[in-house]
């Protein structure tokens, strides 16, 4: 069967896009493991650069993980009940609140960071703690958690679930834990993976919010890109890739699972 020229052109362009996206990543992996990138494969491979990165920057890796987990904990505490409240209330008021909460997605991170610094820069201990970075990350990731949960709540019949449990005499807070939370779990899982992935990669806010004592991985990366040789920068990028790949696979699996559930 002869393929039409439009189809062939589509395949060619798609393949070029894929190459443009993937080849630099492969080059970076290769550069991070090569003895000398400029001299090519003949120079051989080594893990020395990765070791060097670890000795220089391992603290940023741990800090990024801690920040991501703290961010996750806070977005769960704030976002899940908040999303349920908005869906329960509905109407104009809920829409305004939702618009407000999701504002940080629409405003550049730099502007948000500037606002936070101007407002809380004077509180020395808070300004210099990791918590300050965490606040920025929660601000930026909260909309993603809330949207994921709202999306699931809109597909399940939460009102019937809630009323059913109420008819059996369960009080409102118990219904939230017993009936609503287990049913929105796919949304929470998807939201949580998104929050952690975004937090680990967050740079725009963090660059402004961090202090020399609260550097995260992307901040360290920017440092390395500016001042280290290509092999070190690449090895550091490799460490970052290794951290986010499991999260991305998890996100994919969660998405597939939700799709299967909604189909069946």
């Amino acid at each position: 069967m002869g393929l039409r020229w439009t189809t062939l052109a589509g395949f060619a362009i798609t393949a070029l896009i894929a190459l443009f996206l993937v080849v630099p990543v492969l080059l970076s992996v290769y550069a991070g493991l090569s003895v000398n990138y400029a001299r090519g494969i003949s120079a051989g491979f080594t893990l020395d650069w990765v070791r060097q990165v670890w000795s220089l920057y391992s603290d940023t890796v741990w800090r990024s993980l801690i920040v991501a987990l703290m961010t996750l904990a806070l977005t769960l505490l704030i976002g899940v009940p908040g999303a349920y409240a908005l869906v329960r209330r509905g109407g104009r008021f809920a829409r305004i609140v939702e618009e407000l909460v999701t504002l940080p997605v629409a405003i550049p991170g730099l502007a948000l960071a500037l606002a936070l610094i101007l407002a809380y820069g004077g509180f020395g201990a808070f300004r210099q703690s990791t918590l300050f970075v965490v606040v920025g990350h929660v601000l930026f990731t909260l909309p993603f958690m809330m949207r994921a949960v709202i999306a699931i709540l809109e597909t399940i019949d939460w009102r019937t679930l809630d009323e059913g449990a109420a008819s059996l005499g369960s009080p409102a807070w118990l219904r939230f834990f017993d009936v609503i939370l287990p049913n929105v779990r796919p949304g929470i899982v998807a939201g949580a993976l998104t929050v952690v992935t975004l937090s680990i990669g967050e740079f725009n806010l963090t660059w402004m919010l961090h202090t020399p004592m609260t550097k995260t991985l992307p901040v360290g990366l920017a440092d390395a890109y500016a001042s280290m040789r290509l092999e070190v920068a690449s090895a550091y990028t490799l460490v970052f890739l290794i951290m986010v790949i499991p999260l991305l696979i998890g996100l994919q699996l969660a998405a597939d699972l939700t799709e299967k559930r909604t189909k069946s």
Partner: peptide, 16 residues
């Protein structure tokens, strides 16, 4: 339910 989100948004978004 909305209280934590309200406090956080007020303190770290609207105020700044």
């Amino acid at each position: 339910l909305i209280l934590p989100a309200a406090i956080f948004t007020l303190a770290f978004l609207i105020l700044p």
